[in-house]
Design a protein around this nucleic acid. Structure first.
Lengths: 158, 158
DNA sequence: GGCATCAGGTTTAATATTGCAACCACACAA
DNA sequence: TTGTGTGGTTGCAATATTAAACCTGATGCC
């Protein structure tokens, strides 16, 4: 009766959720992307139990989202920073943020807006484009079976 | 010791996760966006326990992500379909999908690709743009305090 | 050095959630 | 009207979350 794992699922959405789809992981990643690095910083910011934080940090490191580095202040402690794989989660955070901005019932409770650092102006909404530059909504897309990879290149040229 | 609620959080990411950030909700929403509508369809597709599915569907309806409609086949049963608020989650699903496509260790296990319905070509990667059209990475953005809303318009003009 | 304190956890125990399976009610079909 | 499929609910065992106590090594201070 373990929580069912989605790791072997063929759906890429499920596979992502298997990695960081639990209640706290994405918030830890959000904090990391805001520059938080220390155990205590995460704990103070998120207010979650320390044992939960410890296990989450451990699995996020195992899964290549975070890595531990020596503390930047020269102390003997360690810090947790995002790997490239972890930084790749940024668009997901943006999408979540923009959904709340658009649909939340109490938008006045949202504390922050995302702006571009250069100009200080709000960023645009994420949009999905086709290869020829059209904006696509959900109804303009379909799923196709992934074409099989060229596994026999060596044979074909041999 | 209830699971801590994120509903009152001021972070829009946390607020979104409070609505559909649990283990199953996003997969139900994914299924709904693929056209699945019936309790049995969700259950067969996701393989989750029926009691869990029942409570998830109930809370997703409560929260305005899904709504129930009379069955499209004329039977007395009901179906679950996405509301506009639910359809708004589409970019999040795309972002999750694209993260897996880019970073998963076993991309060969991904079954499908998203294509635009018209041309059948893979969609482009979601990108974040500034208002003047530059592509922004995480490092090119900052959070600013949301400016207070103009609450006193009536007074000001009175 | 010696002592107090802090950072970063682990352990323990209570509570909540999940998962499974059995059961149930209604709709529909023959 | 008997059977079957759909859409649940209920009960129980297993697991996960939580809070709080505890622990250990690092750091700060005199």
């Amino acid at each position: 009766m373990k929580r069912t794992s989605l790791a072997g699922d063929s759906c890429p959405v499920a596979r992502a959720l298997d990695v960081f789809g639990d209640w706290w992981s994405l918030l830890i990643i959000r904090d990391a992307s805001l520059g938080r690095r220390r155990f205590g910083e995460f704990q103070a910011s998120l207010g979650l139990a320390k044992n939960i934080l410890a296990t989450r940090l451990r699995t996020l490191v195992e899964r290549g989202i975070l890595k531990t580095v020596p503390a930047s202040d020269g102390s003997a402690y360690q810090e947790y920073v995002l790997t490239p794989k972890g930084h790749g989660i940024f668009p997901i955070l943006v999408a979540l943020r923009q959904w709340t901005e658009e649909f939340d019932e109490h938008p006045d409770e949202i504390a922050t807006i995302m702006v571009d650092r250069d100009k200080g102006k709000p960023v645009k909404k994420l949009a999905l484009y086709s290869q020829d530059g059209r904006v696509l909504g959900a109804a303009d897309t379909t799923l196709k079976l992934r074409p099989a990879r060229k596994t026999a290149r060596r044979l074909a040229t041999a």
